Measured scan of single mutants.
Amino acid sequence: QEVDTIELTRQVKEKLAKNGICQRIFGEKVLGLSQGSVSDMLSRPKPWSKLTQKGREPFIRMQLWLNG
C-alpha cells in the first residue's frame, strides 16, 4: 500500500523528540543507516511512488517502529 512519507517522517520526528532519542541511535538500531542518511530522509522524504523497493524499506521500518 501507498505510504504518506511526509506524514510518516513527521510522526517519527515527533516520537524521537518526545522520547529523547537521537537520530544517530534511531538510524543505527532501527533503520540500519548512518545518521546522515536518516537526517536526509527525515528532512526531505521522497514520495512513495518515486522510491525503489530498497528505498521504501526504511519507511516500512519506520512504520513498524511507530506501530510497535
Rank of each mutant, 00 (worst) to 15 (best):
P58E: 11
R10V: 08
Q35H: 12
T5C: 05
S39M: 13
M41D: 06
K46M: 08
P45D: 02
M62E: 00
M41A: 14
R10F: 04
V3R: 11
K13I: 03
S37K: 15
L16T: 14
K15D: 01
Q35E: 15
T52E: 03
S49C: 05
S37M: 09
I6V: 12
C22R: 07
L64I: 06
Q53H: 07
G32E: 02
R10D: 09
D4M: 08
C22P: 11
Q63P: 01
R44N: 14
I25T: 15
N19F: 15
D40L: 05
R44P: 03
T9H: 08
A17D: 13
N67Q: 10
E2A: 04
K15Q: 09
K50R: 08
K29L: 01
R10K: 15
R56V: 02
L33E: 04
P47F: 13
G27W: 01
T5A: 05
L8A: 14
M41T: 10
K29A: 05
N19L: 15
C22E: 07
I21C: 02
R44I: 07
Q53Y: 04
Q53E: 08
V38D: 07
G55A: 13
P47Q: 11
I21D: 01
R24E: 15
L31S: 06
G68W: 01
I25Q: 11
K29S: 09
L64W: 06
G20P: 08
G27P: 02
Q23G: 04
Q63A: 04
L16M: 15
R61G: 01
K50N: 05
K50F: 08
K50M: 13
G68D: 13
S43A: 13
L16A: 07
E14C: 10
G20S: 09
Q1T: 12
K29F: 01
G27E: 09
Q63T: 07
G32V: 01
I6R: 11
Q63E: 04
T9C: 10
K18F: 04
F59G: 00
L16K: 14
N19I: 15
W48K: 00
N19T: 14
W65V: 00
N67K: 14
S43T: 13
L51C: 02
L8G: 14
K18H: 02
G20L: 04
M41E: 03
Q53D: 14
K46H: 07
L31C: 05
S34A: 13
V30P: 15
N19E: 15
V12N: 04
K15I: 10
E57H: 06
D4N: 10
L16E: 12
R56F: 01
V38F: 14
M62Y: 00
S49K: 14
N19Q: 14
R44C: 13
L66Y: 00
D4H: 03
E2D: 04
Q35Y: 13
R56Q: 04
S49H: 14
T52N: 13
R61N: 12
P45E: 01
S39F: 07
L66I: 07
I25Y: 13
L42W: 08
T5V: 02
L42D: 02
E57S: 06
L51Y: 02
V30L: 02
R24I: 04
Q23E: 11
I6W: 03
S34M: 12
V3I: 15
K13P: 07
L16I: 06
G68R: 08
Q11H: 09
F26C: 01
R44Y: 12
K13M: 04
L33A: 11
K54W: 03
V3D: 07
K15A: 08
L51M: 09
S43G: 05
K46N: 02
M62S: 01
N67M: 07
I25F: 15
P58F: 13
K13R: 09
Q53C: 13
S37H: 14
K50E: 14
D40Y: 06
I60G: 02
K54P: 02
W65G: 00
E14A: 11
K18I: 10
G20H: 05
L66W: 03
V38M: 08
Q1M: 15
T52P: 03
A17C: 08
N67Y: 06
L16Q: 10
W48Y: 00
L64T: 13
Q1H: 01
E28I: 04
G55I: 15
Q35T: 13
Q35A: 14
W48Q: 00
Q11E: 05
D40G: 10
F59Y: 13
R44S: 12
E14L: 08
V12Y: 07
L64P: 01
Q11L: 09
L64E: 15
T5I: 07
W48H: 00
F26M: 02
M41G: 05
L33G: 06
R56C: 01
L31N: 03
S34E: 13
F59P: 00
K54V: 03
M62R: 00
Q23K: 05
P45M: 04
V3M: 12
V12I: 03
V30D: 03
V30R: 01
